[in-house]
Write a protein that binds this DNA or RNA. Sequence first.
RNA 1: GGUGAGAUACUCAAGUGGCCAACGAGGGCAGACUGUAAAUCUGCUGAUUUUUAUCUUCGAAGGUUCGAAUCCUUCUCUCACCA
Length: 400
Amino acid sequence: MIQTALREIRRGTAEIIDEARLETLLKNFFEKGETYTVKAGFDPTAPDLHLGHTVLLQKLAAFQKFGGRIQFLIGDFTAQIGDPTGKSETRKKLLPAQIQENAHSYKSQVFKILDPEKTTVVFNADWINPLGAAGMLELTTTYNVARMLERDDFDKRHKAGISISISEFLYPLLQGYDSVHLKSDIEIGGTDQKFNLLMGRHLQRVYEIGKEQSVLMMPILEGLDGVQKMSKSLGNYIAVADEPNEMFGKILSISDTLMWRYYELLSTQTLDAIEALKAGVENGSLHPKKVKESLALEITTRFHSEEAALAAQEEFERVHAQSEIPSEMDEFTLEGPIWIAKALVDCALSPSTSQARREIKQGSVKIDQNKLSDEQYQLEAGEYILQVGKRKFARLKVTQ
RNA sequence: GGUGAGAUACUCAAGUGGCCAACGAGGGCAGACUGUAAAUCUGCUGAUUUUUAUCUUCGAAGGUUCGAAUCCUUCUCUCACCA
């Protein structure tokens, strides 16, 4: 039992520091029913969670199954500093009302994965503000500049002559102090957080709280392209709030290699079950598309519902596998007769008439499922279904 | 503060008076192939119903010239080295 738990906890992790202690915690849970705390920090900025973020959340959920109590920390104080990312951009200060609102929307998204019964949401301004100048000063005496510069990001910037604000040094210290205050047993975060996570151990030792947290680091999830990390700015993400059809389609569009990665980091299937799937694909008894579909179903179900996921699958089959038109699409009404290229622009299927012309020339434009080759084509009054490429559709009503 | 280098389309990057709507690469879009995969191959990738044409674009504004991304002037910004 404990071995299975350990395997699940280890699953997908990039690195675990002080694994022995982690084992002890699990052992105490299984043998004596003792619980322990697992801390994870989040920004109070508007949560637009994508699957990359949920990797961490899934791991927290796994801990909840094995006696972990989650300390879901919202860094409302530390957000004022901004974690050093090399971009050295001073953050906008968030108003308390905004932070509350963001925290609220966090909860609605996060509790789709986490068990609220075993989760405590905390705000670090609650204990950092009372520290005062004296407490803050004391905190700074626990570390020195040379060691601070060991942090990869600081080191690079320092060597490159890029400015590092003194306040940025406080970020790791405060994050570490959070662990002191919360007496966390374990802290988890992305691999990019290593320095900050280790600071928690250091400060717990300095402040003599009688334990040093284990640290568990999760890798950064690759985006849809399979190369770069999933992020909103790169546009290769699947948002938790994505519509079922979109979510399903996006997951099915990832490569087979990436699919296994997603299985490991995102699925709640056991490792044994995943191994079985892999074996099935390898010996040819299982079609990779089927495997990908069940992943898409699982994830879409998690964030929406089983009905929505099944509906998305059906829709997907209809539109793509059998190249039929989707059941829902944007509708437009235009005055006719209208030149086809103009209509494509007005229906937002093409960005410009030049582009629309090219698309017609390339044979990617279809009217009512029929390929159009005449770029001078005029649409008379009537109703049409316009299509550009495989996935852009619009229903157009032309009036006289 | 001083000296030097640079700013070209989504990104990187060629181009130093006409052959430039601007090489090439990446990205994106489309077509073929497929499992809407991936990989591969092909085409397109400033705008415009003048489409073997016209107009606008190479940090900004002026200027020289029949003609400027390319030359000159001023300005703005970025980077490097020195202090």
